[in-house]
Design a binder for these strands. Structure first.
Lengths: 248, 248
DNA sequence: TGTAGATTTAATGTCAGACAATTAAACTCC
DNA sequence: GGAGTTTAATTGTCTGACATTAAATCTACA
């Protein structure tokens, strides 16, 4: 592993890339210990702080973990599903919030992906998944629930549905799509009537999942998407009108 | 923004988290300049190297960019779609390679997600998308193509199909699923007969997309999934037998 | 007056050396 | 042989310095 000191890129970035490539390429395997910071500094012919900056870059991506003490050092980290979830959610959330992605586009993507899980979830969902869905529906019907709590429960409901497919890769991919929508959903104020309609559709979906009727689950999700898009459209229209009023 | 010096966590990690939260929470907006490293060091009551390690962590996630010179500093970075793609692909690839995810599970997830794009893509694909798909099919039929090149073309074909949905969020989510499969696919040796079957299905899918027949696209993808699973099963069975032979 | 070039300056990038904190292993003593 | 102590290796942090970059300012000259 070598770096180019005359390159315009930061040395620490080059070192991080070199090590990252070694991990992705399988030349460094899970739980393998990297050389100590002092040794890396010597190998790359840079100072220890520069090596440390490189290692921190890798740690930020959960590619390595560090441990102190005589048997310590930097170790190649097994990227766990929870870690991957967290990164996925952060990235997706920022992508949406920073790129003026319309609610419509994000909503379409989210429900399209969720429908992809519907047949599998209908077939494989366990009693646990069903119980979680029912419990969340019950929570959503409670009086005095804030909009934020309602949205959080909505996410939990959909997560149970997706997890029902029993495919961790699918759950991971969906985590980003579903959770990243939450800040957008939180902009919406739900009337009691809105909530009732959403809860009814949730009931429909849960019933379909219980009956292992994939097509009905898909249909429920499609109806929920239409409902959500309608709701958002009216909310954002009202917002725009209010802003126009302020400006005029 | 404050940190806790008595916490067991690294100071640089705490500082990175504090700044990241400020970005996600909207208290720091895109292109806003952070205080200089010296000022941050003073604010957080740590040394400059510690601040730098924190900033490198954020840079590794494309959350900030740095610039030298008098008007330089660290700026909140707009997370671009290409940056998000790259992160998504790295994370997904590592997740699969490090967690003994079966080919079957990954393949199922990938095709389930891709089917989610099928109706939208059939409806909206442009002539450009169709042309790309046809071009890749043509390439796949060329003699002397290596397995890796065949797989790469396969990815390009599916990417065109997904992009045809005209939803950047969907394309972003799919990037991880499709690209992360590539290392697994590269383990497979394709016979001429295998390639012919896959190309025929690609033709079928392209024709369906041209006819804007979403159901036919979905059916084609389902058939392709079955074909891929069969192929992988026989390849991995042969591999296992060979290894057993070595061991015996 | 305007412009090209030199200078200044503020910021990041890098380095060297030191000390603190942590923790596993080796050692000592009972 | 076991409990407590010491040792040593490693990461975490700090200080201070210099190198590099690039925008802004200043200067000289046409």
């Amino acid at each position: 592993m070598k770096i180019d000191p005359s390159s315009p890129a930061d040395l620490s970035a080059q070192i991080a890339t070199a090590i990252r490539d070694a991990i992705i390429g399988g030349r460094l395997i899970v739980d393998q210990r990297l050389p100590s910071e002092a040794e890396l500094a010597e190998q790359f012919e840079v100072s220890r702080p520069t090596v440390r900056e490189a290692l921190k870059r890798l740690a930020a991506q959960s590619l390595i973990r560090t441990q102190r003490g005589p048997t310590g050092g930097a170790f190649v980290n097994r990227l766990s599903f929870p870690d991957a979830y967290a990164q996925q959610i952060t990235t997706s959330t920022l992508l949406l919030s920073m790129n003026a992605v319309s609610f419509e586009t994000a909503c379409e993507a989210r429900f399209a992906l969720e429908r992809a899980c519907a047949p599998l979830s209908a077939e494989r969902r366990t009693a646990d998944h069903l119980a979680t869905m029912r419990a969340e529906i019950h929570r959503q019907a409670q009086a005095g629930l804030t909009d934020e709590a309602f949205c959080a429960s909505d996410v939990a409901f959909h997560r149970a549905l997706v997890d029902g497919a029993g495919n961790p890769v699918l759950s991971y991919q969906l985590a980003g799509a579903v959770e990243a929508m939450q800040p957008l959903m939180n902009m919406i104020t739900f009337t009691a009537r809105d909530r009732a309609r959403i809860i009814a559709l949730h009931q429909e979906i849960a019933n379909a999942a219980e009956a292992q009727d994939g097509k009905a689950v898909t249909a429920g999700l499609t109806a929920l998407e239409a409902e959500t898009q309608d709701l958002a459209q009216s909310v954002f229209a009202a917002l725009a009108a209010r802003n126009a009023g302020k400006a005029g």
